[in-house]
């Protein structure tokens, strides 16, 4: 009995505040927009009994999903979200790998401090970290001031996709560094000595030994950046321009500006369907890592 209560409390909480809301989104995505409160139809009328349930299901259709395929805006936004997330992930890897490598090869007494310095930004507000780039990249900002000292004409970076890339790389960098550092730190360095004894140059030894051994961390880091970056809202709306298309922003505007709840719900469902593939791949990689450890 006590065991039942123990399971029931968190179970019911998650059912009521995670699963049920999600089913509501699914239901509204199949509804039609209506000029009423709430602004969609049909609503389930249980007092009408079986007839009410039947007319409820009869009123559901895939119209909103068809609409998503017909309007250019949506599939372009999905494609551009995936593209922006992918490009940022590659840049984050190129920036993050050398840092993780340097940390793993630093003297052992330095490593806890370096680790803390990487984690510290996590505890600082995400919004503030994004905001800090607004002052740097603005037309009258810090970067253009420094460029001005060298006689370089000012660059327009804020309100472009470049600023979005910078924002994603900056805020998600710790997610890339930490898993790579974890695999590199575990690595047995005598393997490298062996490779060099056998005539490898340091660079070849890196490509043939170090990099393959860190692959699990690289894959984990890439997914940890790629998955949340696709649905990002704050970065494109603060650093991006009006032509920066990302699906998180589209969903937000569909809901708050256009008040089209059924289409916003359909956008959310399709976004989830897109995310399922990388999430499953990520889980599989984690499983493999655990088995290897």
């Amino acid at each position: 009995m006590r065991r039942f209560a123990l399971i029931a409390v968190p179970y019911l909480w998650l059912l009521a505040l995670f699963l049920v809301p999600f089913l509501i989104v699914l239901k509204i995505s199949l509804s039609d927009i209506a000029l009423s409160i709430p602004p969609y139809a049909p609503t389930l009328d249980l007092s009408a009994g079986w007839e009410g349930v039947r007319s409820f299901f009869a009123g559901l259709d895939f119209e909103n999903f068809v609409f998503l395929t017909q309007d250019d805006l949506y599939w372009k936004a999905y494609l551009s979200s995936v593209w922006i997330a992918a490009v940022s992930t590659v840049i984050t890897l190129l920036v993050g790998y050398p840092i993780a490598y340097g940390m793993a090869r630093a003297a052992p007494e330095w490593r806890p401090t370096l680790l803390m310095l990487v984690i510290l930004p996590f505890w600082t507000s995400f919004l503030i970290r994004v905001y800090s780039w607004m002052g740097i990249l603005a037309n009258e900002g810090f970067l253009n001031m420094v460029l001005g000292w060298f006689g370089i004409p000012p660059l327009q970076i804020l309100a472009t996709n470049t600023a979005v890339y910078i924002g994603i790389v900056y805020t998600y960098l710790p997610f890339m560094i930490l898993p790579i550092y974890a695999t590199l730190e575990r690595m047995d360095e005598s393997l490298l000595e062996a490779a060099e004894d056998l005539g490898c140059s340091r660079l070849t030894a890196f490509w043939l030994v170090t990099f393959p051994l860190s692959r699990g961390g690289v894959i984990a880091g890439c997914f940890l950046v790629f998955i949340p970056a696709i649905g990002e809202f704050v970065i494109p709306s603060l650093l991006g321009g009006s032509d920066t298309l990302m699906i998180g922003k589209v969903l937000w505007e569909e809901f708050f500006s256009n008040r089209d709840w059924p289409v916003a719900s359909a956008v959310a469902i399709v976004l989830l369907l897109i995310l399922i593939v990388p999430i499953v791949l990520f889980q599989r990689n984690e499983q493999k890592q655990r088995e290897a450890a």
Partner: peptide, 28 residues
């Protein structure tokens, strides 16, 4: 299985979707 799914899913769920679904529940 459903329970552990509901524990892990919110970790990877985009915030816009979590927010939207909860709002629709509260209105509902």
């Amino acid at each position: 299985t459903l329970f552990s799914g509901m524990i892990y899913a919110p970790l990877v769920m985009p915030e816009v979707i979590t927010g939207l679904s909860l709002l629709l529940l509260f209105i509902g």
